[in-house]
């Protein structure tokens, strides 16, 4: 078992190192993301799972520094293509935003301009990064993008306004805008949460085919464990602004190595769920991020918690090949009793 070590991933296209982001509000400082490190590899679909307030969205917004007036990155680095975006000048960041790292948001209606036809909105994105493009080239490029995201009759839809589109179609337009400059990295923040399951399925298929075609690396943020299982190859589980567990998708579902992940998986009823049995729920509610608990943020709700959990933050422990957990139950000194990771026989 290796304790936390500095790791340098050669194939990483984007790496986030010890990122901390806070919001300074009238109620106090909200420590939304606390010491988060992860990397995204070329062509990979990385899932970030967590409940509301877990810091998953703020982590992704920090990458492009879209934090609004009250938010600030207080520590850490975001290395993209050899440069640190946190300390980079504004102009350089602007060239990355949209062009090389693009984002798709949860609510397409509030992300699109209601007063501008969608064709023009997609064109605006291309024009910002290629100011010298000719009008007819721009138009044919927009039509190509509309076709790429399977909008029927692109010629006709070019002049439509967002309100004339259904929720699923609007999200397709958002994806077209995000893909307009052929980005290296696509960050999708709950892109299907507001959609019906049948429409969600269509959008997930689209994202998968685009990844296969263009080898775009994708960070997919969601609270839905089912979506992650279908789409992603690697998963990060966040809670209380920290990464609790990191694993390949099969490992996470088959051998969850953190009590929080175990609780999350158990609270979703599956097809074979015994109807007479109660659903296993996680008692309590998520922590207050203005005064986060001193130790492991999950300790107050964890049924395996011991004294040390509430007092001191757990180290990042490697529990398998590319499988990491931040839980005190994995340290060699942890007692075997009431420890789900230390089965009979002493082998973890």
């Amino acid at each position: 078992m290796a304790m936390e070590t500095e790791r340098k991933d050669a194939a990483a296209i984007l790496s986030v190192e010890h990122l901390s982001t806070s919001f300074f509000t009238s109620n106090g400082r909200v420590n939304a993301v606390r010491d988060v490190s992860f990397s995204l590899r070329q062509g990979e679909m990385l899932g970030i799972v967590g409940e509301s307030g877990s810091g998953k969205t703020v982590s992704s917004l920090s990458i492009l520094q879209l934090l609004g007036g009250s938010g600030r990155i207080t520590d850490g680095k975001i290395i993209f293509d050899g440069t640190d975006l946190v300390s980079a000048p504004k102009k350089q960041l602007r060239n990355v935003r949209g062009a090389r790292i693009a984002m798709v948001f949860q609510d397409p209606m509030s992300s699109l301009n209601p007063l501008m036809p969608v064709g023009k909105q997609i064109g605006e994105m291309i024009k910002t990064h290629q100011p010298k493009i000719k009008a007819d080239e721009l138009r044919s490029e927009v039509l190509r993008l509309l076709g790429l995201v399977h909008i029927p009759e692109p010629e006709k839809r070019y002049h439509s306004y967002p309100h004339e589109f259904s929720g699923g179609m609007r999200q397709r337009v958002m994806i077209a805008i995000a893909l307009a400059c052929k980005p290296d990295v696509l960050i999708a923040d709950e892109p299907t949460t507001a959609l019906d399951v049948t429409i969600q399925d269509q959008i997930l298929k689209l994202l998968r085919s685009l990844r296969d075609e263009f080898q775009t690396s994708v960070i997919f943020i969601t609270h839905d464990l089912g979506v992650v299982a279908e789409l992603c190859s690697r998963v990060i589980v966040m809670y209380g602004g920290k990464i609790m567990e990191e694993a390949l998708v099969d490992d996470l579902y088959e051998n969850p190595a953190h009590p929080y992940t175990m609780g999350l998986l158990a609270s979703v009823p599956n097809v074979a769920q015994d109807k007479q049995k109660r659903l296993q729920s996680i008692p309590g509610s998520p922590p207050d991020m203005i005064r986060p608990p001193a130790g492991c943020p999950f300790a107050p709700r964890c049924s395996y918690a011991r004294n040390i959990c509430g007092a001191q933050e757990a180290p990042r422990i490697q529990v398998g090949e590319s499988h990491f957990s931040r839980c005190w139950l994995w340290v060699p000194e942890a007692p075997a009793e009431n420890n789900p990771f230390r089965k009979a026989g002493g082998e973890a």
Binding site: D201, L225, G226, A229, N270, V271
Partner: peptide, 11 residues
């Protein structure tokens, strides 16, 4: 069929 299955192998 559209419901995502939270079991990667089945999915």
């Amino acid at each position: 069929a559209a419901i995502p299955i939270p079991v990667p192998k089945l999915a």
